[in-house]
Amino acid sequence: MKIPPLSQISLAASWLLLGLLLAMVADPALFTRYSATAGAAVEHLRAPSGAHWFGTDQLGRDVFARIIYGANRTLPAALIAVATGLLAGAGIGALAGAAGGRVDAVLTGLMDVLMSIPELLMSLTIVILLGFGTIHAAIAVGIGQIAGFARIVRGDVTRISAMTFVEAARGGGATFAGVLWRHVLPNCMTSLIGLSVLRYSTAILSIATLGFLGYGAPPPAPEWGLMISEGRDYLATAWWMTTFPGLAVLLVALATTRISRTIVDPAGKRR
């Protein structure tokens, strides 16, 4: 049998992982019999074993169960973050690209200012203003992503607006908004979807980072970043408390990045 190329294997593995995670979000109880929040004190800081695959933490909670329940928290939060960035960014970018002239200059300048602020710093500032919590952290991360989306959409809109078929549609009596909605935006979709999936992985990282710094969900919530943060104190004695949530973040980020690459560049030409 011919072995498929590595890129195909990694793509299949990425989809498989994403599917598993979706199932975990849908019904965490299917994957573990342990609770994410209640632990047995006698079982604390146990190394990985048959009973506790990823070991237990300082309160005797099963790390595997906490990662699974954590998916339920981190993945939807990252979705909210990307949706925020996508909707606001695409709106601003489309307006700038389609209107052109002074509107474009002002909006593009504003986006450049936003981009010059490090994304994490901005998210931190916003989350402090909004108050702590997973949703707030997600929105803060999303706001940090607006500028990136706006730039991509503006570039695409400018490029597509100059194409002959757009002029042809105008000649056929289409209104400005009609052309934007029916021709320009659909033709931006490929790069927009690709970017969204890519930004999804960075959103997961950012939300985990905010959680790690203590701005996300408060304990005892099973949030991946928070878990890494809690495990930090036990790094010398209980490596599994940080390693496994860390791996979870890493694998999800890798998988979504891999998938986004096939969306933006289906033929794999740019490798």
Partner: peptide
């Protein structure tokens, strides 16, 4: 237009 492919929206 001159170029028939360019003057038609590829997604329609």
């Amino acid at each position: 237009y001159q170029n028939p492919w360019a003057s038609l929206d590829p997604r329609q």
